[in-house]
Design a protein around this nucleic acid. Structure first.
Length: 260
DNA sequence: CTCGACTCCTGTTAGC
DNA sequence: TGCTAACAGGAGTCGA
């Protein structure tokens, strides 16, 4: 599913839209418009404007328009981004391999005839004009030791729940969280505030490595733990049967032997 | 402010 | 073979 890694790939793909002029906005699914944004808002704010730049905070993809407005795109669990009908990621985990235009929820049509399309079977994504970015914590790709320690590694709540909390660190989803904690040898259910200095460093180091590995390998489904994230799966490093639990409201796989 | 529970959505898949 | 129910998770809301 799209996590920060996939959204960064989408952002790079969306660079192909920079410099183009919006001719038309297509909103076939009103449910997909979020935060009070209407089709009329999008037409008023975007038609005639040039896409000047792309941006990303966590899982939120941003398109800056020359009108001064900023378009926010969220992809939920199954959303894909198409530019001129071309996808950046062909295999999206947990998404359909089918590629049905009936799932098009939103599109920008450009004056050159090309288009930017959001194709989302399960409709968990959404589009918002000028979204509130202040609700997101520092981006996972650039977070440093201090904000990690002060905003994420605090309190009694489960460590993994903290990593998934977009207001504290933006961009970590279920697969990235499981892979990072597995590599760092940390139990997902431990209190977030209970890590010592060594463990904090280990967490940050592994977060950075996982993000860079996943970017290189083509997505958050390319982790070493991924193949074992099935019922009865075994730890790829020590062979112990993985623990399958719900932590932070999400299905969580961890190794009882080396994640302490 | 914190935090867990609940809800939304629908294609896929396991199981009968 | 065909049907049903469980499952997946990002994100918002609500109430204690």
């Amino acid at each position: 599913m799209p996590e920060g890694v996939e959204i960064e790939m989408y952002r790079r793909h969306a660079e192909r839209a920079v410099g183009r002029v919006v001719e038309q906005v297509e909103t076939p699914d009103a449910w997909y418009l979020k935060g009070g944004t209407t089709g009329e808002d999008l037409v008023d704010g975007l038609v005639g404007a040039t896409i000047d730049a792309t941006g990303r905070i966590g899982k939120l993809l941003l398109l800056d328009a020359s009108s001064g407005h900023r378009l926010g795109l969220r992809f939920g669990m199954t959303g894909r981004l198409l530019i001129d009908e071309e996808a950046s990621i062909e295999e999206l985990e947990y998404s359909s391999r089918r590629n049905d235009p009936a799932w098009d929820r939103f599109a920008l049509v450009f004056t050159n005839g090309g288009r930017l399309t959001m194709r989302d079977p399960r409709r968990l994504g959404g589009v918002e004009l000028d979204p509130d970015e202040s609700r997101l914590g520092p981006d996972a790709f650039s977070i440093t030791a201090r904000p990690l320690r002060e905003r994420v590694l605090v309190g009694e709540v489960a460590l993994k729940a903290r990593l998934l909390d977009q207001s504290r660190i933006a961009g970590v989803g279920n697969l990235i969280a499981d892979e990072v904690l597995w590599r760092a040898g940390l139990d997902p259910a431990r209190p977030a505030g209970g890590l010592n200095a060594t463990e904090e460093k280990r967490l940050l180091r592994n977060l950075r490595r996982v993000l860079s590995d996943f970017m290189e390998q083509g997505g958050s489904h390319t982790g070493k733990l991924q193949v074992a994230r099935v019922r009865g799966g075994r730890c790829p490093t020590d062979g112990a049967e993985l623990l399958r639990r719900e932590v932070g409201g999400r299905t969580t796989y961890s190794c009882p032997a080396h994640q302490g």
